[in-house]
Nucleic acid binder design. Structure first.
Lengths: 340, 340
DNA sequence: GCCTGTCAATGAAACGTTTCATTGGTGCGC
DNA sequence: GCGCACCAATGAAACGTTTCATTGACAGGC
């Protein structure tokens, strides 16, 4: 390993014939340095190839200019657009984003949260696999790092940014009920976290206000399991009393579509279909799928903005802020009244 | 801001009644501390809620245990699976991943590379918007940080990990030529970087060996522009001598499919279609799209592994390592012989 | 011509670790 | 019983910055 000793501020100061403090102020573009010396320092720094050490800066200034992001599954394509917007906002404010993947393991979540503490991140944006995992909550409540929950809510007084999954699912289910569907399947993720829970509640509420009884066998919350979409859809569709419509999370939809194709069911003739989360798969499908839509980028940006506000102290921490972003139902051609 | 002074190693040492060095060795699980003291230190640390400062550690140890990733567009869904695998491999080796988004701007790329220097990252994995941008190359050649180019290649002796885009495109075009297509469109990204360039070359080579002349108006390399897929496909398809087949990058495909739908062309009757990069959009399309396939996760993992090897010094830097991962052509139902 | 206020520049302390040369005990061989 | 090697533990230096109290110089007011 070639290690010809890094150039430090000391070498620059010596070469420019000034003191450490002066170099520091030039580097940080602070007031109070004459233009002659400023130039001298700058040219010395350039010629030596000086690069400030972030570690030293952040140790001294007690700020890492970094934010940790913990998501349950990076490869989830819905996250891609979201995370991109988050990064954009953070970067513009001079923060870097460390991305980690908990793979929905509570153990790994705890590990990552510990890591974030050690790294002294200035803030963190996180999803939790289970919102009420006691070990995780303990770590969180002891943490002094400004935190924003992402697509999650907690009994702890934590700020959060989330999509209005309840309304989204409610719109979708109500719409299908109005089309006279009486057996509607719901295929989504675990109820241990906001998106699945809200959808389950909305599903029941919509049924209740329409006076339609709920059949628990038509709800599947296994979405995080591999092939969950396929299995859940297949099971429901071959049952004695199959659903006439399906409301499906975007990540489960590929599996669901495979099941539908296997069973050769025509859409919307035999089966109506609504996707939660509007993706290319939905809009390009034949027929195009009716979908619950929200702006991925806006959620990601909102989370970053709330976090930045907390870091700067602009938002008082006395009462948790919960930001909820709206959804809309995009009607396409995948829904019809059920066959008589 | 409440800042009741962070607990440091000093407080722990005082409380446990030992020296700094002893605490340090306990924390880092090093040899040479008696079990009595070890326990004392541990319990003192626990009761004080001590958390080591990463900044101080990394300043002292000259290692940031962090790796920078610079991609041209995080929201590109193809990257999601790739980046996820990269993170996984890095995390397992104790490295964190800082994700940045250059949005294909050379200026921002330079800025990000500078940032990586200041942060003293232990390594970086990067895509470049233009492989031969002189300013960027200068920064890179002066950098002392182990670097792996990702889906890019350079005249500089830099290590790289990439998919075999040349073979992939060659397979696709040859297949269509064999089906007797004589006017094949290619819609992909800029030739200033490996994927687009390799595809362009493969396109020409395949035509040459089949003795079919190349029509430059059937190639579009604007893929990074918004709606590029739509515009390129539309232009080609309404031209006097439209193509009978299209080879399209995964990110351009949604736009292309919209154009096809607008023009009401049936697949594969009127138009054959091959997608480069196998995504849900391809496999779920009706009819399912023939696609050039490779394992996204493997590319991401390979990049991380090569970088880790370089960081640890396991791979000698004398000659650049270029890892190329294979592709295969997945035949589905979107291709047929051209209509007479 | 002296005092004061302003401003550029300095020097040293502080940030929280790790490392390394020392010290102080203990057990062992002879 | 003496010296030696060994091991646990110590204390101080070092890592590369920022910050802050101080100094020095200079101009202006009286």
């Amino acid at each position: 390993m070639k290690k010809p000793t890094r150039i430090t501020i000391v070498e620059v100061a010596r070469k420019a014939g000034v003191s450490l403090g002066t170099v520091s102020r030039v580097i940080n573009e602070k007031e109070g340095v004459g233009s002659v010396l400023r130039e001298k320092v700058l040219s010395a720094a350039r010629s030596l190839g000086y690069v400030p050490s972030f570690a030293a800066q952040s140790m001294r200034s007690q700020s890492s200019r970094a934010v940790g992001l913990m998501v349950s599954d990076i490869s989830n394509p819905l996250f891609a657009a979201t995370v991109s917007a988050t990064e954009e906002v953070l970067y513009r404010s001079g923060y870097n984003m460390i991305l980690t993947n908990s793979r929905d393991s509570p153990d790994k979540e705890k590990e990552i949260l510990d890591l974030f503490q050690r790294r002294r991140f200035d803030g963190m944006i996180i999803t939790l696999s289970k919102e009420e995992d006691p070990a995780t909550l303990r770590v969180l409540s002891e943490s002094r790092i400004p935190t924003v929950l992402f697509e999650r809510e907690s009994t702890l007084p934590l700020d959060s940014v989330a999509t209005d999954h309840y309304s989204g699912a409610h719109q979708a289910v109500s719409y299908l009920l109005k089309l006279a569907h009486r057996r509607i399947g719901l295929i989504t993720v675990t109820q241990a976290a906001l998106p699945g829970r809200a959808r389950g509640l909305a599903y029941s509420a919509a049924h209740k206000s329409a006076g339609v009884p709920v059949d628990a066998s038509l709800m599947s919350f296994d979405g995080f399991l591999p092939d969950a979409g396929y299995h859940a859809a297949y099971r429901m569709l071959v049952s004695p009393r199959p659903p006439t419509a399906l409301v499906v999370g975007a990540n489960q939809m590929p599996g669901v579509l495979k099941a539908i194709r296997t069973l050769k069911l025509s859409i919307p003739k035999k089966l109506s279909l609504v996707q939660i989360g509007d993706t290319d798969v939905a809009s390009l499908h034949q027929p195009p799928l009716t979908a619950v839509r929200w702006e991925f980028a806006k959620v990601g940006a909102a989370a970053a903005e709330l976090l930045l506000a907390k870091i700067s102290g602009a938002v008082d921490g006395s009462r948790p802020r919960r930001i909820v972003l709206p959804t809309e139902l995009v009607l396409r051609q995948s829904c019809a009244a059920p066959a008589a």
